[in-house]
Design a protein around this nucleic acid. Structure first.
Length: 692
RNA sequence: GGCGAAGUAGCUCAGUUGGUUAGAGCAACGGCUUCAUAAGCCGUGGGUCGCUGGUUCAAGUCCAGUCUUCGCUACCA
């Protein structure tokens, strides 16, 4: 009977996926990484639980539900089913998968909130924030530029000055401008609640810089970025309307989604506890619990400063470690929808075996926060060569020789192979524990090489031809299958399906790491069945193409039945609109002020020092030529632009940029970066035509 | 701009506290084998360890500088 008060317990979380979209292969880096770690802990016989949930609150969910004509509750319920199905498909095995929109989570939020109040960390104040009347939104500091009030440097951001390092409020800027619309922001005020994080500065300094809670590069990042100056107050409330939990002692205000999302780790644990007759305090207020968070580097700030601060203030168990990973790139580039490389979990599963991706990720993951790259050729080579050629082949080439007689009763002489591989178990385990799966895979595949070399020398196929060698044949195959089983144990965290198949082949389920330390004898051997198909590069290409061809309408058809059931009229996703809400209504007079013209690209060139800009020369016909700097470098090759027609804002006031004077603006849609799509007129339009 | 990280064979990467002719896998090439999912085994070729300088008996490994690449740059979810 385990004593939950004193036994060491390991609580593992992965970041909560946002209920605003499906899981894709980028997300899966983290869930696979975490799942491997948890499975490893369990295989070692440790008490570990894997807790996760959907992150369900916030403006984006609210707007999406509205656009789809369904309630938020319906939206997030459908999305959770979608997520759970994808995770199951990849053998991600949660002990509990909840929702931040649960009664348990609300209860915990209230607890944490009360503690923050009690510690005197919450302050309330009117926030005078710049509001962009053109874009119809409040402006974050980075979206306001103007003249530094301290040194009068031009073109400085709303929070601090590059030139003199002064920090100030965006409302202090001289001649502020919205970078969204170039409109003149106006000051509006609203009541907000803040956590005074600076009061925890000393604690956070110590927690982040000592005790191995973080990778060193992360600790350095925090030190260099945040901890050298006072920590800003954290704005944790949003005024109505907002989809979330209303703050009990502040009616009309809601907790900002980033407040209740991490508390979802605890809320979800609470729900699990109720199911299993456990006490929440044994897990989240206990010296004997190790809390491990796995996250991507994009949310470092929240998990390494706000979150430990909140936990500390509320008296919960602090994380033992926050394990931070990098992003996934495909073919060395950021994943992109238009290139088809932003592959949804569901699309992947339509074409390929989940074990491939689990193994591939494992072979690339280390404790570093560097990005990992999925190169299609490497993926195919690795899976076929390592998994099929080396690993599965061991069983495939020997099992059928001893289907009749089974494993030998005594472990034969194998030249020390099994013993050596058993000894390697410790370094493999160490590598798993340290998140260095790549190292673990290297060691394991080295052992598989040795095993295949043994088969080659022992040549069971020759022994088989001589009936007097039957016992020798049984010995050789017993050795080989035991080496295979040993590797299957080592790989069980990564490849649970192979472990299961190995257990079935040899009539002995793999349940514990220690099974790698002693051979299995005297068991019958079942008829060998293929364990993994080889992967064909055409299948991978088909997967990419099918993602690429997905028009928005098809995309909906590919989303779960439950979602299309509740929103049958859905055609396009609301993502784009959510990302950038509609601007304020404008009059026809306002619109007429903007003179849009068709223009031809006469020349296009790179600006060597600019990260994002291309220098374009545009013709409006006749002698009227304009130089325009456009932020489309990531999306377009200059050569391919020359000659084509574009739309330009022809009467925009010229703007002095670092690299020269820009005399207009080219019209384009998309989120920015690689996702930029220039607009073109239908054929017939000529340079100089005005757009009405 | 600031900060963080990386630059080692064609590709992906190992190289512990500085110590013999710098390693692995994949790819290439040559041979062997046929039990196995055209899998396996043996062997060969290929690197002035980004560049420059320094410390040292000794540097891929430490120090300084420099170049290149990538990522992050907070009230975004």
């Amino acid at each position: 009977m385990p004593d939950s008060k004193t036994d060491p317990k390991i609580l593992v979380t992965a970041a909560l996926p946002y209920a605003n979209g499906p899981i894709h292969i980028g997300h899966l880096v983290e869930y696979v990484q975490t799942d491997i770690w948890v499975r490893f802990q369990k295989l070692m016989g440790r008490r570990a639980i894997f807790i996760c949930a959907d992150d369900t609150h916030g403006t984006a969910i609210m707007i999406r539900a509205k656009n789809e004509g369904i309630s938020e509750a319906e939206l997030i319920a459908a999305m959770q089913q979608n997520h759970l199905r994808d995770f199951r498909g990849f053998d991600i095995e949660f002990d509990y998968y909840g929702s931040t929109n649960s009664s348990e989570n609300y209860e915990l939020c209230c607890q944490v909130w009360a503690a923050l109040r009690q510690s005197g960390l919450i302050v309330q104040r009117e926030v005078s924030q710049l509001f962009d009347p053109v874009a119809g939104t409040f402006l974050a500091d980075r979206f306001v530029k103007g003249t530094c009030p301290n040194c009068n440097a031009l073109d400085q951001y709303g929070d601090n000055c590059d030139k003199c390092n002064a920090t100030y409020s965006p409302t202090d800027l001289i001649n502020p401008r919205s970078t969204l619309s170039d409109g003149i922001p106006e000051v509006r005020s609203a009541m907000h609640l803040f956590v005074e994080l600076e009061k925890m500065h000393e604690f956070l300094n110590e927690w982040t810089q000592t005790g191995d809670h973080l990778q060193t590069e992360v600790a350095n990042y925090l030190k260099g970025h945040f901890l050298q100056k006072p920590l800003r107050d954290w704005d944790v409330s949003r005024p109505s309307p907002y989809f979330g939990f209303e703050i009990p002692d502040s009616p009309g205000n809601y907790w900002y989604v980033w407040f209740d999302a991490p508390i979802g780790y605890i809320g979800s644990t609470h729900a699990w506890c109720k199911q299993h007759g456990e006490e929440l305090s044994d897990w989240w207020k206990s010296e004997s619990t190790e809390v491990h968070h796995f996250i991507g580097k994009d949310i470092t700030y929240f998990h390494t400063l706000f979150w430990p601060g909140m936990l500390k203030a509320a008296g919960f168990t602090l994380p033992k470690q926050v394990h931070i990973h990098g992003f996934l790139t495909v073919g060395g580039e950021k994943m992109s929808k238009s290139k088809g490389t932003l592959v949804k979990a569901e699309t992947y599963l339509d074409h390929l075996d989940p074990s491939f991706l689990r193994y591939f990720y494992a072979s690339k993951l280390s404790a570093s926060i560097d990005d990992i790259d999925l190169d299609i050729n490497e993926f195919v080579a690795k899976v076929n060569s390592d998994l099929v050629g080396k690993l599965v082949n061991l069983a495939s080439r020997t099992a059928r020789f001893i289907e009749d007689v089974g494993l030998a009763p005594v472990y034969p002489h194998d030249g020390g192979l099994f013993k050596a591989a058993a000894a390697a178990g410790q370094s493999i385990a160490d590598a798993y524990q340290a998140n260095d799966y790549a190292r673990a895979m290297r060691i394991i595949m080295g052992l598989a090489d040795d095993a295949n070399g043994f088969v080659e020398n022992a040549a069971p196929w020759t022994l088989k031809k001589d009936p007097s060698q039957a016992s020798k044949l049984q010995d050789v195959c017993t050795i080989c299958l035991n080496l295979f089983r040993q590797l299957s144990v080592y790989l069980a965290p990564v490849l649970p399906r192979i472990a299961k198949q190995c257990g079935e082949l040899l009539n002995d389920p793999i349940v514990h790491w220690d099974q790698s330390q002693s051979p299995l004898l005297n068991n019958s051997v079942n008829k060998f069945q293929h364990m993994l198909q080889r992967v064909k590069i055409e299948d991978v290409q088909k997967m990419i193409e099918s993602g690429q061809e997905n028009t928005p309408a098809e995309e909906i058809a590919a989303t779960p039945v439950s979602l299309s059931d509740v929103a049958p009229t859905l055609i396009d996703s609301g993502d784009a609109l959510i990302a950038e809400p509609l601007a304020e209504t404008c009059s026809i007079e306002d619109f007429i002020k903007i003179d849009l013209r068709v223009a031809r690209v006469l020349a296009a060139e790179h600006v060597p020092e600019a990260k994002k800009l291309l220098k374009l020369t545009l013709s409006l016909g006749g002698e009227d030529k304009r130089t325009v700097f456009a932020g489309i470098k990531a999306a377009y090759e200059p050569e391919k632009l020359v000659g084509r027609l574009v739309l330009m804002v022809a009467n925009l006031a010229p703007r002095q940029m670092k690299f020269g004077l820009s005399e207009g603006m080219v019209a384009a849609a998309g989120a920015g970066g690689v996702e930029v799509y220039l607009l073109s007129p239908d054929s017939g339009a000529v340079p100089g035509h005005r757009v009405h």
